[in-house]
């Protein structure tokens, strides 16, 4: 169905406010980031020298950049997968009307209301090596868990906090998808002798492919940029840079190190990375998704 505006100017007028906002808060900063990435910019202004691709050469030759990009990628794959698989299991359970699924549907949404930094603060306490949940483990095997010193522990801690924070939204989306699966199909499959697992695999999952695609697309981009609050409140990128994802490295370089050009260059590269990723998702993965039922 197609609706046409009688006058063309009206259409433009209606999209103008939104366009202005996006231009001011997105296109302009993006433009500046790209512009700065070709200059050496003095922190207080008053001198910026065009240096061509020198910043890109510097950043791409920096092993720290590749390390944080690798960490970002690992975080994206592990964090996003868990942040979808766990809500999927919860949603399948809630959809099957198992005991307590009604209150669970409500309670599982609560973490959505908690900001990243607050989640970080709470998890820092939960994972405190002396007072937290794993403290008894340390009492038995001294030093086995200490995210303040051990990089792998710190990374695990960030992933757990991220997954926890990602449960509500993905749960809501996946559950709504599952509930829209017609009961008739369940019954038909059951009549044909399909057990619960078989029905999940052959009926439910194919039918919620659009929801799965949506959560994957959002979760992948979100995990690249959204970990900032967690890292800043939990590890500040440490220990030894083991949780310095690219988004945090950009902040540290630009705001704490006054390296505006380097930060701008990495911002540009991160944007390109996310664009490629999203393009891949939409051009390759979305073709396999069927929206009509």
């Amino acid at each position: 169905m197609l609706a046409l505006f009688p006058q063309r100017w009206l259409a433009f007028a209606l999209i103008l406010p939104q366009t202005l906002l996006i231009a001011l808060f997105f296109y302009l900063p993006v433009y500046l980031a790209f512009y700065w990435s070709f200059t050496l910019e003095r922190p207080f202004g008053g001198g910026s020298e065009f240096v061509g691709l020198q910043n890109y050469a510097r950043v791409l030759a920096d092993p720290e950049f590749w390390r944080s990009l690798r960490l970002t990628f690992v975080f994206m794959v592990i964090g996003s997968t868990l942040a979808i698989v766990i809500p999927l299991i919860l949603a399948l359970a809630a959809d099957r009307h198992i005991r307590l699924s009604q209150p669970a549907r409500n309670i599982l949404v609560w973490p959505k209301g908690v900001a990243g930094a607050s989640i970080g603060l709470v998890f820092v306490f939960i994972f405190n090596p002396f007072l937290g949940l794993l403290a008894p483990l340390n009492a038995v095997f001294p030093g086995i868990w200490n995210p303040r010193i051990d990089g792998a522990d710190a990374f695990t801690m960030i992933v757990v906090a991220h997954v926890w924070g990602g449960i509500p939204f993905n749960f809501v989306v996946l559950l709504s998808g599952l509930q829209a699966v017609p009961q008739v199909l369940h019954r038909a499959a059951a009549l044909d002798g399909a057990g619960p697992w078989r029905r999940v695999r052959d009926v439910q999952l194919p039918l919620i492919a659009p929801q799965l695609f949506l959560t994957f697309a959002l979760e992948f981009t979100e995990s690249v940029t959204g970990a900032f609050g967690l890292i800043d409140s939990m590890t500040e990128g440490g220990p030894g840079g083991s949780t310095t994802l690219l988004v945090y490295k950009i902040y540290v370089d630009g705001f704490r190190g006054y390296d505006l050009s380097g930060a701008a260059t990495q911002t540009a590269l991160l944007m390109i990375f996310v664009l490629i990723l999203t393009a891949f998702q939409f051009l390759v993965l979305e073709r396999r998704v069927r929206y009509e039922r």
């Binding site: 010193i149 990128g237 220990p239 030894g240 840079g241 370089d253 704490r256 190190g257 390296d259």
Partner: peptide, 19 residues
């Protein structure tokens, strides 16, 4: 110059040695 950033680098590298 950029000494604040150097302090971060020093902390990061020596932490790698400590752990």
């Amino acid at each position: 110059g950029f000494f604040v950033q150097f302090r971060d680098i020093f902390m990061e590298e020596t932490q790698k040695a400590f752990n």
